[in-house]
Design a binder for these strands. Structure first.
Lengths: 145, 145
DNA sequence: CACTAACACTTAGTACACTAACTATTAGGG
DNA sequence: CCCTAATAGTTAGTGTACTAAGTGTTAGTG
């Protein structure tokens, strides 16, 4: 394996590019989510619930690759924002049943505009973004082995 | 612009893939950095200093794309770990001169192994990682306009 | 040369994100 | 059936990240 003369050169570190890109793209979402009182991680939880609900904390965690300890306070904030309900599942009292409220469901229609605005702001082609998504998926798959 | 039938589908969101990939790759670094008492953001600060030092907080912030408010406590932790010194610049007392200690400089030789271990752990080809880096750089450039 | 604006960093406050330890509930084996 | 192990969430503690407000220093202008 050859990583060149300086394996520690900052401008060649994939990990650095990943974290900067992640923070930079999240920064694009910030002004779009702020009117709804949402952060980007909270928005991702709503995407998961819009896909399927109700679901348990464990289920959401496996989908978003988050520890339950990260989700627990986040879901409480989403509850106090009025987008989500939390109650113990009757069948198994260990599980928490996280569901959307009316407001949470209504928000979806508004949110549909967001991806278009983000892609527009980025000014990149759909093809390029899809290629990037594929590359990122391979990295994620690689870390999961 | 056409984002398909469901623009909010989680498995097609670049922002989601970016944040998961970022966290997953950082998780690979964790056991490699832990013996040195370092976190990944702290490691990136050291990469910046190994490239050039001493430098100011502002300078490091521009390189790593971080707010001074993020760096300020981080640099104090690096100082108490013994890798870095912090002192006001004589020429301009507003600026902080961040420099490497002997231990900070010595650590570089140890750290040179890390990129190889990460690439090995990922099990991806150098070519694929370089292509990903290019794609991420284009995203970062797009967010900077 | 005083005075205000700009600059560099720090502090406070909120929200992730992770590890480790804890609580409550359910399931399984003797 | 009891009792232990496994499971699902929560809490505590540390360390980013970001915005906004604050402090001290320098620079630029009347």
């Amino acid at each position: 394996m050859d990583l060149g003369p300086d394996p520690l050169a900052l401008d060649r570190q994939v990990c650095f590019a990943l974290s900067v890109a992640s923070r930079s793209v999240i920064a694009i979402y910030r002004p779009l989510l702020e009117p709804h009182g949402l952060t980007h991680p909270q928005y991702l939880v709503l995407l998961a619930l819009w896909q399927s609900s109700p679901r348990s904390v464990r289920d959401i965690g496996e989908t978003l690759r988050h520890e339950p300890a990260t989700l627990s306070p986040m879901l409480k904030r989403l509850e106090s924002l009025g987008y989500v309900t939390r109650r113990r599942a009757r069948a198994d009292e260990r599980q928490l049943e996280v569901d959307l409220t009316g407001a949470g469901r209504t928000l979806r229609a508004e949110a549909e505009k967001i991806p278009y605005r983000v892609v527009e702001k980025l000014g990149m082609s759909i093809e390029e973004l899809e290629a990037l998504h594929k590359a990122l998926s391979r990295v994620i798959a690689a870390t999961e082995r």
